[in-house]
């Protein structure tokens, strides 16, 4: 595209972002500040993720973009087209074919492999934000690995509701050192981060933070010994492909109380349906 650098961002900005990325990979789970740029979309739509993707994209990469697990939602379509036009890279909706996957809310159901990079759009990078209003105090807690407060929050949930009520952005300990907000992915996806062969990069545009989970890093969801972390999944099979292990969306179909549960990962669902017709 004329008048723009490859993948929209200028090379100096990309270098700055890459430096932050290298540091983030070197210190897993630690939030690295970076000079977030104005992007041609509003904060909250994925400015952090887009800057990370723009900085790591090469001409040979194959890009997949998902939003709420789906490849065909507005944001996913726009961001995919944005990079198709500004970088001229190949795009795909298939998880297995992609080398870079920019995501919001989900980690694909299909197992990731070595060499793949998942880029997350993060609204709130600070896991302690809701508990400790002072940013400086929160940073001190990170520096001293002092995360008792997060356990107080879990304690409160169990005391009031009998279980931990966090269903998304469930806090994790990365490499036994840093508490990390895994972005608004469902708690269901947390175990996919643990010892994952892929590289996971998190970009928060408005908050100007980048953090990372390198391949094969231990990622543990916080819990109590007697209240272990449990996966929460709607107890149904996908109405389209029949999958019983995937994460489901509930879709209201009419105003008579009709509803259906379908895979939130559209690519995975299509693949399962393909297998069924082939069989």
């Amino acid at each position: 595209m004329n008048g723009y650098n490859f993948a929209y961002l200028d090379e100096q900005t990309k270098r700055m972002v890459r430096r932050a990325l290298l540091k983030a990979v070197a210190v897993p789970g630690h939030q690295v500040p970076f000079g977030s740029r104005e992007m041609p979309l509003p904060y909250g739509w994925g400015t952090g993720g887009i800057q990370v993707t723009a900085s790591i994209l090469g001409p040979d990469d194959v890009l997949k973009v998902i939003d709420q697990g789906a490849d065909d939602t507005t944001n996913a379509v726009s961001i995919r087209r944005f990079f198709a036009r500004t970088a001229g890279v190949a795009t795909t909706t298939r998880t297995v074919e992609a080398s870079v996957i920019q995501s919001r809310h989900r980690i694909p159901e299909t197992a990731l492999r070595e060499g793949q990079i998942v880029v997350y759009q993060v609204p709130l990078p600070e896991p302690l934000a809701r508990l400790e209003p002072s940013r400086a105090a929160a940073r001190e807690m990170h520096a001293m690995a002092d995360y008792g407060l997060m356990h107080v929050k879990l304690y409160e949930d169990i005391a009031r509701l009998g279980h931990v009520s966090i269903s998304f952005d469930y806090p994790v300990m990365v490499n036994g050192r840093y508490l990390m907000a895994p972005s608004p992915i469902p708690a269901f996806d947390n175990p996919k981060l643990d010892m994952s062969p892929a590289l996971h990069l998190f970009g928060a545009g408005r908050e100007k933070r980048i953090y990372a989970v390198p391949p094969y890093t231990e990622v543990r969801s916080l819990a109590f010994d007697d209240h272990p972390f449990r996966l929460i999944r709607a107890p149904h099979a996908c109405a389209l492909c029949g999958a019983r292990t995937s994460y489901l969306d509930e879709i209201v179909t009419d105003d008579q109380g009709g509803r259906m549960f379908v895979c939130s990962d559209t690519d995975y669902c299509a693949e399962q349906r393909g297998k069924r017709t082939a069989a």
Binding site: D146, G148, H151, F224
Partner: peptide, 24 residues
Amino acid sequence: VSAGGNVGERLMAPGINSAGARHY
């Protein structure tokens, strides 16, 4: 935070090396 959470906070803090620090 509830009274129980307040009393328990010190037990949940790191470096407090007592058994069951992570046991609700």
